[in-house]
Design a protein around this nucleic acid. Sequence first.
DNA 1: CGCCGGCAAACGTCCGATGTCTCTATAGTG
DNA 2: CACTATAGAGACATCGGACGTTTGCCGGCG
Lengths: 231, 231
Amino acid sequence: MALTDDAIAKIRSMIQSGELPPGTRLPPEPQLAAQMGLSRSGVREAVKVLESARVLDVRRGDGTYVTSLAPRLLLQGLGVAVELLRDDTLLEVMEVRRMLEPMATGLAALRMTDADLDELGQILQDMRAAAGDAEKLIQFDAAFHHTVVATTGNETLTSLLDGLSGRTLRARVWRGLIEGNAAHQTIEEHHTIYLALRARDQLLAQASALLHVNTSEAWLRTVLGATSSDR
Amino acid sequence: MALTDDAIAKIRSMIQSGELPPGTRLPPEPQLAAQMGLSRSGVREAVKVLESARVLDVRRGDGTYVTSLAPRLLLQGLGVAVELLRDDTLLEVMEVRRMLEPMATGLAALRMTDADLDELGQILQDMRAAAGDAEKLIQFDAAFHHTVVATTGNETLTSLLDGLSGRTLRARVWRGLIEGNAAHQTIEEHHTIYLALRARDQLLAQASALLHVNTSEAWLRTVLGATSSDR
DNA sequence: CGCCGGCAAACGTCCGATGTCTCTATAGTG
DNA sequence: CACTATAGAGACATCGGACGTTTGCCGGCG
């Protein structure tokens, strides 16, 4: 189990050391294989792993390149990881969001531009119009929070929170919200956050975001409780 | 580029759907290949990717099994991702830690047991004894923060913060601290956090953790500034 | 009852061949 | 001269088979 993993480590360390800066093209697979002392098969496995981590970008017929290594890419894996977490750990994820999202929203209140606010207002309007359509609600909900956090200008923070709010997790919460006739109330929570942001009120934005996450957590608890008692 | 990626998606979705619960043994590679309609090579690449994500556990001579899917495993990849981030995004990571770590430390103040406090005290003592030895300081520093956050009982939170405080990042900060003769002061910051935790004072713990992260960030800025002006 | 050796199963690695896609340079055309 | 179509080379995608190594298990032996 050493050869392929060694290759992974070697390539990774070459990138980390700056020997292979973003955008660099790697040698062809056969040459890379010779260079690292293993067969082409092993190299392919190593490259595939790094490709799945968005560290390498393999272009068929062309070559293999080092990606930009932007946080948006490297932290993308967090999302798929969260999707695989078991139900009983989803509450842990919620607890993290409970800490992070209010802080991020508060920070956004300080950094948000008028254009950002207009975009948010539009999303809010879309959300209201989509009431009843679970699929769209989930989509606009994701867009709303993503937009808010993105205005902090911190791509790492944005990617992290995006990953923590995985699609499945979000879908479950909304399922609970809709079945519990709480969708309308939740949409209004977004409005409250919007108002706080528009007022550039950091503390208010923070508080309203916390309330919102808390609502989500409560409904997630309901959904999880219901499914576990189904057995 | 479809076959292997399809296989990855298939296996992942089988796990997510509960069809392959933690601990399950997958069919042998040749059989899995037939089942998914591709060669053994492709299956191996897919399995390797999921193994690197700590989703599968491949035991040579035995078989391939689904891991426990614990957050500690699945979120491990965050660490290697952070290690690959470019210098200019490390400040973004610090900003996230600035939000998350104080909250986590504050929470720890509420949940910490006497045994946890004793362990922390021991680490603090070790840290003081190691003054001057950068390697040990880094190690005890990591142990200190890990222990604090671990007492929250939130494994997801712990894994996340562990990943965000990658070894390389920590090493750089301590390099700055030592060269700037600020190591002693930083050790005392740990003591301050410890006292707040011992007093079960959430707000004080939160504040002292924020100060501490801020110090780290300042020294990271120094280190980054120095290296970039080296050119 | 416990230890030990051998067998079978499964993963690790390698090799060679063929398919398919991209990019590029080149020849041809208007 | 500029543009376009095309052929070729280069590179990844996939396959099939072979052989080595490790592990787990089971039966035999002391």
